[in-house]
Every structure is written in structure tokens, then in C-alpha cells.
Design a protein around this nucleic acid. Structure first.
Lengths: 197, 197
DNA sequence: CATGTAATCGAGAGTACTCTCCAGAATATT
DNA sequence: AATATTCTGGAGAGTACTCTCGATTACATG
């Protein structure tokens, strides 16, 4: 018994992703989102009571979509080094398929105003990072005493580094990017040489 | 024959670095810089006619300080892999010594409003990146046909990745960070396995 | 068709920032 | 001491954005 929505949450968040990818988190103003979808600003406030709520949802939706595939890639049984390489390659492959969402992730939650997020959002973010931490710890164990710093680097930060400059420039990823990320992860975690302590 | 300056450029830029490191480029407003040094806003405009001029100088001064040491580390004669590792380690060591300036570099020039920079600034930035590109090309040659993508990754993006999450969190770098960056660069560029093409 | 409900629409108040302008203050030189 | 010169200090106009609020619209149900 109600008027049907004309601008739904998904539509507004998609617009926010475009804005953030093009010009960074600060470009995601309520006014800009409204203009992007052709709505008056009041309609945006109907979905998201304040700007921090929109930014939180923008960040969380994106990061959760990303993590789902990453965790799946990492969960592959068998050789842990191969699983690590698969996860590293996944980061690049996902970025290639979703360049705008990947560009969102090049910034950190603080850049999306985490300090002002509504109550539930902080916990949702914590759950996500806890999952990632657990997965990293699990792999560290399977690798038999590797440096946790090296593991985090190989599986998360390094593949993002492969992708970063291209995404920032709005350029397509080079053909060998997945392979480079996988190779770097493999070499970094391969047994036989100590990875520090 | 003039009144002595009370707020000089260096002082204002140092304040800008603190603000940018603490809360990102957008926190560097003219008002905030003025408040940080205890001056009225007019005094800031006396040194920098517009905000983009201040942001440009903030970026360029920081990046040039960084590049000087990096280029020196890379220029070491002898084994190119060792030179690469030295450059990678340098990135981490410099970040450890200058965490606030390093935090500035975690963002890109676009985040500092490059599109609005005054005339000379764009050229200064271009000169810097040209030097870096030349150095990277030189090392690629000395390595004998390595993948340029891999070289850039090993010497620049990867060490920044080692350092990024800690700097963003405002946390000190872990003790083994230099070693990890050097190790990763060495393994990535070591001869004997193909690095893609 | 009448009614209830959720959504839209847009004007406008409040706030923060950029930038202008100019009177006055502090020095070096003559 | 007078003068020229550079800088400070602060008020205020213009602009962009956040958020509020009430009137209005469109649909589902009985």
C-alpha cells in the first residue's frame, strides 16, 4: 500500500561508486549522488539519513563483495603456496572485472569517514576484517611458520600494489598482471629460504 | 627594507604535512593550516595565493625529498639485483624516519588536486617522474630484459605496500620491514626464473 | 472508488571553506 | 628620523554542501 520507490539503495550506491572511482571519496557528496541519478537531494536522504551512512554502506558493500571471492580462492585445499597464489591472482582478476569497485578499495575506511559511521557499520567492518585475519592466520599455519607480515603482504597488499597505479590512472590493467601477482606471491612464500622473522 | 616574516613557507608546509598525514589531503584546508600555526587565514594566502598552490608545493616538496634518496640508492654500481634491493629497502627506511611525509605519499597527486595546480608545478612533477622512469628503465636494462612491470613493482609499489597499512593506522613499522621489502624485491627480480613478458 | 502508506520533491536554514581587501605594523635603508 | 617595502591581521562576500521539513504524488488494499 505504498508508492513504489523510484531511486533504490542499489542505484544510489552504484552512483556513489562511480563518483568515488572517478574522483575519490570526497567527491561522494549527497548533492553529487543526487545529481548523478537525477534525483533531488531529499530523495537521497530518504535512503540514507546522513552522509556517513551512505559512505559506510558504499565501503562495506564493496569490501564484502571483494572478500567473498578472495576467501573462496584462499580456501582451496592442497598446496598452501598454490592457494596463496590463487588468492593473489584473484585480487587482480576481480579488479580487472570490477575496476570501479576496485578503485573504491584503493582508499581506506578512514577516507570514507569511518569515525562517523553509524553503530552497526563498525561491527560489520570488524566482522569482515576478522574473517580475513583468520584466513591469513590459517594459511600462515599451513605454510609452517612463515612470517605473518610476509603472508599479509603476498596475499593482500602486494596484489593491490600491482593494480594500484593503473586503477588510479583509469587505465586498463596490463595483460600479465594476474600472472605477476601470482608469481610474486609464490616467490615470496616459497619454502627453502627464510622469509624473515 | 621590509618587515621580517613571521610565518614562512616551510612552517606552513610542515603544518600541512601534519594535517595531511593525520586526516588525508582534504583536511589540508587553508583555514586548518592557519589554525595549526596560529595565524589568521590571510597570512596563509600571503604565501600561497590559492589552495591548489599550497597542495602542489606540499606534494612536490615531499615527493622530491623522497626521490632524492631513492635515486641515490638505486644508482649504486655493481649487481643490479642488489641495487634494486637497496632501493626497495630505502623506501621503507625513509618511511620509518619520516612517517608523516611518507603518509603524504600514500595518496596520489590527483588527491592533492593536480588538475588545479599552477603552471610550473605540473612541469616540476613531470620532471620528477621522468627521472624515476629513466632510473627504472636503466635498471631494467642492467637486469637484462626483465619485465618492466615487475621492476616497477619491486622498486616502488611493493615497498610502499609493505609500509602502507602501518602508516595509515598511524602505527610504527615492524622491525623487519626493510628486510621484507629487500627480500621481496630480490626474489622478484632474481635471475633464473622468467618474470613474465 | 475511498483510504492509508510510503516515497518523492524542492525550498531553505545552518555551516565550513575559499578568497578578497585594506588598514596597520615592523623592519632596512637613506 | 623619514621613507619605502614587506608582511600581518581580521572582517566579510561568495560558494558548496549537509540536513530539515512539509506538501504532494502514486500505488495497494478493501
Amino acid at each position: 500500500m505504498a508508492r513504489p520507490p523510484r531511486y533504490d539503495e542499489t542505484q544510489l550506491l552504484d552512483a556513489a561508486v562511480r563518483l568515488a572511482a572517478a574522483a575519490g571519496p570526497t567527491a561522494v557528496t549527497m548533492t553529487a549522488v543526487a545529481k548523478e541519478v537525477g534525483a533531488p537531494s531529499g530523495s537521497v536522504y530518504h535512503r540514507f539519513p546522513q552522509r556517513p551512512a551512505l559512505l559506510a554502506e558504499l565501503w562495506l558493500r564493496t569490501v564484502e563483495r571483494f572478500q567473498a571471492g578472495w576467501l573462496a580462492a584462499l580456501a582451496a585445499p592442497g598446496d598452501p603456496v598454490a592457494a596463496a597464489a590463487a588468492a593473489a591472482r584473484h585480487v587482480v582478476a576481480w579488479s580487472r572485472l570490477n575496476p570501479r569497485e576496485a578503485a573504491v578499495l584503493l582508499y581506506g575506511p578512514d577516507d570514507y569517514g569511518r569515525a562517523d559511521w553509524p553503530a552497526g557499520a563498525a561491527e560489520r567492518a570488524a566482522r569482515g576484517t576478522a574473517q580475513v585475519r583468520a584466513a591469513l592466520a590459517g594459511l600462515t599455519g599451513r605454510l609452517g611458520g612463515a612470517d605473518p607480515e610476509a603472508v599479509t603482504l603476498a596475499l593482500v597488499d602486494l596484489p593491490l600494489a600491482v593494480v594500484r597505479r593503473h586503477l588510479r590512472a583509469g587505465a586498463p590493467l596490463p595483460p600479465g598482471a594476474e600472472r605477476l601477482a601470482g608469481l610474486a606471491a609464490t616467490r615470496l612464500l616459497a619454502p627453502g629460504a627464510d622469509t624473515g622473522a
